[in-house]
Design a protein around this nucleic acid. Sequence first.
DNA 1: CGACTTTGACCAGCGC
DNA 2: GCGCTGGTCAAAGTCG
Length: 306
Amino acid sequence: MEDKEGLDPAATEFKSDSSSSWTLAGPDSVSDGVNYFFDRESSILSEFGWNILQPDHADEFERLSELDRADTRDDLAGDFSGSSKRCGVAGGSCSGTASNPGGSAELPIPNPSVSSSSSEDPPEKSTDFGGKQPEMPSKVRKKVQKRIRQPRFAFMTKSEVDHLEDGYRWRKYGQKAVKNSPFPRSYYRCTNSKCTVKKRVERSSEDPTIVITTYEGQHCHHSVGFPRGGLINHEVAFARQFTPAVSQFHHPHGIQLHRGIPPSTTQSHQVPIEVRESREIPEPTSQLPKDEGLLGDIVPPGMRNR
DNA sequence: CGACTTTGACCAGCGC
DNA sequence: GCGCTGGTCAAAGTCG
């Protein structure tokens, strides 16, 4: 059932979120492909509560990020408040145990109660949402659970398959029709009982060939293995980013997603857009992860993936 | 038989 | 207060 087989992650886009504060850069300095996304997907991403910023505007992005840190804390609660009711629970487990999930912990959160930063949340309740809490009635659980947003990362992938292989195993737990979109949104949870990472997969209503995958939370375990064929695709790389060890990775200029992927694959192709979550932006520059190999090479905007 | 998907129902947050 | 919407639950069905 999964499209895993046919998956060709060669084309993924990436964005991260936790602040729900995304910025879209202007189209003038990007390639057509990028423009395409910025023009068409911004609305969709906005629904996620994200704004996209082009890599070319990294500097600007950084500035915005700073602003976000200072001004949009409250947005964290606002943007997704209507849609992530139980996310907080999800965050509890892995992130709670993770030393510094998403790297967001480094940022002072004036109002932790509404912050999406899992690290700020007490690991209390339902640390294991994936496994639920059998004892506690769902209603009670819902009351107890405060929505605590996890850092989120999204990929925009031009692909014919919906569910991209990322090295982890996922269990689908829901599907919903999305307003203003003919395509349903699917909800997946990591099958690891101790891991509460979730992801949503949906197609762009504007361009059905584009799949938007949103990760929420961080894996507290290693991937189960590489996708069939032994490819290490970009999504794997990004997924790994969710592990505590590399969760703070951010690159100011984007990410090359092709490493290890046969460039000739046609099923999907990467669209050179990087989307990041402002709150997770660490110190500008010079913080390239040593793990970068996992994440791929940094390539100039417009040159990526072509 | 276990793991996974499907799908309708339920619930909470948000906007009007 | 009410309706809409997104997110999740959980039973039933499917698959290997």
